[in-house]
Simulated scan of single mutants.
Amino acid sequence: MMRMIAIWTLILAWGLALTGPARAMDSLVQAKNFHADARTAAQRQVPILVLFTSPTCPYCERAKREYLVPMHMDPGYHSRVIIREVNINSTASLTGFDGKPTTEGAFARANKVSIVPTVMVFDPRGTATSEAIVGLLIADYYFGYLEAAIDEGMRMVRGKKISLKTGP
């Protein structure tokens, strides 16, 4: 009996070990430091796509599951965009593009985001590069809207060849 319990314990532990990384892979990176993300974006010459969400929003979960997480997981997008998530109701600390401390909710309010899901694409200076995509819109065209916003962001960033000063 003890041997059977030990075997089941090992199987359960092994299963839990496998689901941890899988869960991390099926979500977006929560925004923590846009100033650091902006330095990376400037080096790579890519825009930063921000998905504004709320934990109770089923459309947000659908946008993540069907569109943004697959983009985030696709190595082809790593050379085109940095993707982050911001919870519009959160008081979690966040460093803004300007390097100043703020919160996720304050960042959303500063960008006039009150409806979720909303997608905005920014250049490394924190300037929006296209119109916000508000709501899930027509699901059949949503991927196209995201692609167009990323392409516009890339044109803006690569056209300006943005570099951020790291010192005086």
Rank of each mutant, 00 (worst) to 15 (best):
R109P: 01
S130I: 03
S114V: 07
G135F: 15
I133E: 06
I133S: 10
A128F: 08
R109Y: 01
T127P: 02
I115W: 05
T118V: 10
V119A: 04
R109C: 01
G105Y: 00
A108M: 11
V116R: 04
K100Y: 00
D98G: 03
R125D: 04
E131R: 15
V116S: 12
G99P: 07
F122E: 02
M120Q: 10
N111S: 03
I133A: 09
A132H: 09
V113R: 05
M120R: 13
T103A: 06
E131Q: 15
E104K: 01
I115G: 00
I133F: 13
M120E: 11
D98F: 06
P124Y: 12
D123W: 10
P101G: 08
M120P: 01
I133D: 06
R109F: 01
V116Y: 06
D98Q: 02
T103M: 05
P117L: 12
S114R: 13
A106C: 00
A128I: 14
P101A: 12
N111A: 07
K112F: 15
V134M: 13
V134K: 13
T118Q: 04
T102D: 01
N111W: 10
T118P: 10
T127C: 03
T102L: 06
V119T: 11
R109W: 03
K112S: 12
A128P: 15
R125P: 01
G105C: 01
S114Y: 14
D123I: 07
S114P: 00
T129H: 12
V119N: 02
I133G: 09
P117D: 04
P101D: 05
T118M: 08
M120G: 06
V116E: 08
S130D: 14
V134W: 08
D98I: 03
T127H: 14
P101Y: 01
A132E: 04
